[in-house]
Each structure stands twice: as C-alpha cells, then as structure tokens.
C-alpha cells in the first residue's frame, strides 16, 4: 500500500490502514506524527487493560473470554499481544491468536501480535503510539497482553489504566520469585485455573503478601477464575470497573493521564536526540575525534546537545 494512501485508508476504517500504521509505529517511523495529527480522533484515548503473568497461566484464554463479555456491551475491542523475540535471531513465534479464534471474523475485534523486539526507546514508546492509533481508529477498549518474563511487563503496566496479574495454583516458588517484580504492579490479581487444587492456597499467599505491604488507597482484589470454563470472568470485569471508579473518584485518573503525556513527550525527545547523537558520532569527525581523545563521553555529549539544538526533530516528523 503506498504510504500516501495510508491516511485515507485509515480514515475509511480499512483494517489494513490501521495494521500498516501500527507497523510504522513498531519501526519507529517518525512520519506517524502526521497521521496522528491529521486525524480528528488523534487524541482520543481508549481505556487500556494490561494483562501480565508467567507463560501458560492462561492470559490469552482469559483475554478471549473478556473480549466476548465486552462485545456483549457492543464495545469495540482491540488486543495487543506482546510476545518476546529471540535475543539470538530476533525472530519470534507469536501464538496468542490461537486462543482467540472465535473473534477472528468479528469486525468489532482487532488482534495484533507484537514482538517485544529491540525498540530503541523501549517497547513502551511503540505500544503507546499503537494504543493512540487504536483509539483514533475507534476502539473503545484496548487489552495489552504481555508475558511476564522481564522484557516488557513493567513498561506495559505504565501504559495501562488497570493492570491485571494472572497467576495459577501450583506456581509454588514462582510466587516467591515474581514477588519483587510484577507483584507490585498489580491493580487486580487473577488466580486462573481456580478449579485446580491449590487455588485457595495461592490466593491466601497473595493476600498474606499484600498484608505485609504498605496501606494503599487501592487494595488489589484477588479474583479466582477458570477462563476456559468462562467462570469468574464477570467478576474480573467487575473488579476492573471498581478499579476504574477508584481512579476517577480519587483523581488518580487525571494525574496518571498527565504523567503519561509527560512521559510520552520526554520519551520522544530522548528517541529523537539519540538518533541525532548516533548520526553525529558516526559522521562528524570533530565529535568522534573529541571522544577518541577524551576517552570519557561527557564533553562529547554536551557538544552534541549544544550543536544539535533545535534540529533534533527528525526530518520526517517536521511540519
């Protein structure tokens, strides 16, 4: 598809326009700016749910069930499923669609698999822009799904309004292991496969762990579910709604929205500046020579910033 048609395709509601735009975002193509600024709904933000948890805990199945529920309320739902890339080949097998077959032909559902591959400014920049595109395209809810293996879940949690951590019985030491990492980002805990032995114990362990922490204005609820049987899915959504109500009532929603915007602007500056710095370092003998002489990078970095000044905006993003 020629790029000049992208805006038209996107505006016409053609799914290919959206898919291509998300690819541009993944490649960090600066021209996406013109697309977003050229859309009437460019600033429309969907509600964002984040799901994370160890592989095999049933995230995709749970998301699949949740999509069905949301569709019953006629909401348009997009799923961004982030899977890790191989650190060796860069390749990936993205298999989250397998669990979401029943929505494959529903025009109100869009499913996109993303590799967590070496996004320069981190996955969060690309994901945030993808969320923007989905909102502008007319999706009401965006579900971000990510494997909790240290590559992406923290960044994704920063984007989501509500973050759900999915656990299962029998993880045993697994619960201990992730305590320090993803346990802290949960707004809602889901103990999936709750029909298996040990579910009560797992819920008890989470409860006990939470009781050791500081008293917060929001206490993350623990919901048991069996996604594959469709049990507990309503309760999960109810917990999400309660969390959303809490965010609104406490004023946290507005605070977070502002913080997110500031993050977004700062990350863009960092991304643009990094690109220019690389270019100067590779192409400008004065800068490179200084670096070779100094053997310490501070003076060269300062010189780059001073020199680049107002010309940090990439050409393709200039107006």
């Amino acid at each position: 598809m020629p790029e000049r048609n992208l805006l038209a395709e996107f505006k016409a509601g053609n799914i290919r326009g959206l898919a291509r735009a998300i690819s541009l975002v993944e490649q960090r193509d600066p021209s996406v700016r013109h697309l977003l600024e050229g859309l009437a709904n460019g600033a429309r933000r969907p509600r964002v749910l984040g799901f994370t948890g160890a592989p095999g805990t049933g995230k995709s199945t749970l998301v699949d069930a949740l999509v069905s529920n949301l569709r019953e309320s006629e909401l348009r739902v997009a799923v961004l499923a982030v899977d890790p890339n191989s650190p060796y080949s860069g390749g990936a097998i993205l298999g989250d669609r397998i669990r979401m077959q029943r929505h494959a032909l529903d025009p109100g559902v869009y499913i996109r698999s993303m590799g967590a591959r070496g996004h320069l400014g981190g996955l969060s920049v690309a994901t945030r822009e993808a969320v923007r595109l989905l909102g502008a395209f007319g999706f009401d809810e965006v579900i971000l799904e990510t494997v909790g293996v240290g590559q992406s879940e923290l960044e994704v949690a920063a984007i989501a309004d509500t973050t759900l951590v999915v656990l299962t019985p029998g993880l045993g030491d697994g619960v201990q292991m992730i305590k320090a990492g993803i346990m802290e980002i949960a707004d809602v805990f889901v103990v999936n496969k709750a029909d298996l032995p040990g579910a009560q114990k797992t819920m008890q362990e989470i409860r006990s762990m939470l009781s050791m922490g500081p008293k917060l204005s929001w206490r993350a609820p623990i919901v048991g579910a069996s996604a594959i049987k469709g049990e507990g899915v309503d309760e999960v959504l109810a917990a999400v709604e309660r969390h959303r109500a809490h965010l609104e009532a406490s004023g946290e929603a507005a605070e977070r929205a502002e913080a997110r915007l500031k993050d977004e602007a700062a990350d863009l500056v960092a991304e643009w500046a990094r690109a220019q710095a690389r270019r100067l370092l590779d192409q400008d003998e004065a800068v490179a020579g200084r670096l070779r002489r100094d053997r310490i990078p501070y003076a060269a970095a300062e010189e780059i910033l001073t020199r680049a000044g107002g010309r940090l905006v990439p050409e393709a993003a200039r107006t």
């Binding site: 690819s23 993944e26 490649q27 960090r28 193509d29 600066p30 860069g90 390749g91 990936a92 590799g115 591959r117 070496g118 996004h119 320069l120 991304e271 643009w272 690109a275 220019q276 690389r278 270019r279 010309r311 940090l312 905006v313 990439p314 050409e315 393709a316 993003a317």
Partner: peptide, 9 residues
Amino acid sequence: AQVEEPARP
C-alpha cells in the same frame, strides 16, 4: 535527520 530504524522483520 532520520530516526534510526530497526530493520522491519
């Protein structure tokens, strides 16, 4: 000025 792009897989 161009933002460096990871090759598109």
